[in-house]
Design a protein around this nucleic acid. Sequence first.
DNA 1: GGATATCATACTGATTCAGTCGGAATTACC
DNA 2: GGTAATTCCGACTGAATCAGTATGATATCC
Lengths: 150, 150
Amino acid sequence: MKLSSRTEYAVRAMAELAEMHGGDPVPLRGIAERQDIPEKYLEQLFRQLRKAGLIRGVRGAQGGYSLTREPRDVTVGDIMRAVDGPIAVCSCAAEGEGDDECERKSHCAAHPVWARLQSGIVSILDSTTLYDMLAETPAHDIQGNRGGGS
Amino acid sequence: MKLSSRTEYAVRAMAELAEMHGGDPVPLRGIAERQDIPEKYLEQLFRQLRKAGLIRGVRGAQGGYSLTREPRDVTVGDIMRAVDGPIAVCSCAAEGEGDDECERKSHCAAHPVWARLQSGIVSILDSTTLYDMLAETPAHDIQGNRGGGS
DNA sequence: GGATATCATACTGATTCAGTCGGAATTACC
DNA sequence: GGTAATTCCGACTGAATCAGTATGATATCC
């Protein structure tokens, strides 16, 4: 029941990209330094985020990374799935399909609990966007993204 | 974000003890066989459950394990904490105390999400009891619970 | 006393995880 | 065109955690 460091790092880094959204691409090195994440490791994560279509990389000098979508359209669940694969509290209650392994044991008393846990987790992760994250972080009143929440 | 096998095993085994609650102590071996759990491994888990005060062991022939409390007074969270320690999605959002490590980084955009996730998980785990588990398992209209048996 | 159990500790093998290395390809700027 | 900046890529490694085993001691019923 613990988050991987991949997820922790990726979410923090994505939050920073969201902050800078709309401006120039942000070089990975700076993100790694500010967030205190090993640079090469973050590079690996960014590759996965890119393959998942969440970010775009611009090569060469003055290059860097930027979001492909609006911060309000990227959820924490999206990020987690990109770097850690499908969310699954156990093989019995994976998202996607094919829980054939446990289906036959339909008399398993634990199954309903895990299913409830799984859907609770997924619903929290999928209902929080990068925009939400920035909005609830006090230290950030970002230029550009104001507008009236409430 | 995955359950340990300790938790999966322990919860299944405890559900079986709950089923037999009120009768004779149940030997570990039978539980292990019926639930398809390595016996010696389960023994290890039962020791932790015992130290946590959730079950009682009766030694010797005709011995076995039984619940110390009513099934309605034992939650899945209790079981999980007994075998896996405190529930914590990350060091920033552990239950108990001392999150000094991340407290200084109070500008961390991810923190509120993890806190929400943590409390969502805990609330599901702590609101489901063994009694609930049996009640929602269709295949069980248990015969064992009316005393006589043998 | 012997069979049946729980109780206790220590060990091991495998898998996963976090992080690293070395280098190739691309682009801005001079 | 050269150089520095920067993304892109695959493979590798060391460490930690996890799942499961081995061995034996202690208690209790018959």
